[in-house]
Amino acid sequence: MKYQWNASAALIFAVIIFLSFSSMVSAGNPAKTFQLNLSLPQESKEEPDPFTEKYEEVMREIAISDEAAEVVDCIKSAVEDVQDLTLDITVTEIRDRRNEEVVLHMQVSVEHRLGRAEFAEPSAVRGMIVLADQENLEVWVFQPVTNVIVVRGMEDASKEAMAALSIGQNMAQLTDYFDFSQYNVEIIEKTELEGVTDYLLKVDAPEDEVWYVRVKDDSWFPHEITVYEGETLQGTMQLSNVVLNPGISVEEIRSLPDVKVERI
């Protein structure tokens, strides 16, 4: 059953990416949660409230070089205008000195508020397809073992998954996954190959986590994120075959095997 947690973690991450994109790119609410004003707030004669004071204190502590800020800004800009995307995600988690790998193919349509994940590895979830329909607040799961599609409310599915993974408290951090401007960011490696520069960023994330983010300047879409907690390697997530705005149709993303449907 250990693979279930991995699969769930990968799926949740995928859904979170989807939700993050939704909130970032939504036309009616442009970049509401994503844009972070790094400039100092305008002076005001009014007494600042405690929250603002704390915010300012935190922002003053963020040390980021001009080049790092530029890279962070480029990453933010790259994902801001995305309407849909496809990508392959490989999550490698280090657990009890063993590598556990989850591989899935993800399709996201921000416009139609749909996210779809097809699992390839591990074998315990291979062939499963999960379709998250944010508009109807439903999750459709194709189960190869019974050859049926199970439909459940997204709220229930998320709640159960959150409880299983105990990451509910980290949701705020995960929803801004690609917004690194909130943290101390340092460029620790910069290599150039065939005209493409590959940056390795060190991001001081909250709760004693350090993320090493690799991003190339040809797409500005992160292609590898390695997470350390203290000195301990937690895992790596690789994002490959990323296609931004491929124009996925609703039919394509909703396409599921023609099997019996059961609702929970």
Partner: peptide, 10 residues
């Protein structure tokens, strides 16, 4: 009756 068990089970 059918009920969910985790994210990928029932």
């Amino acid at each position: 009756t059918i009920r969910a068990r985790g994210l990928l089970g029932y």
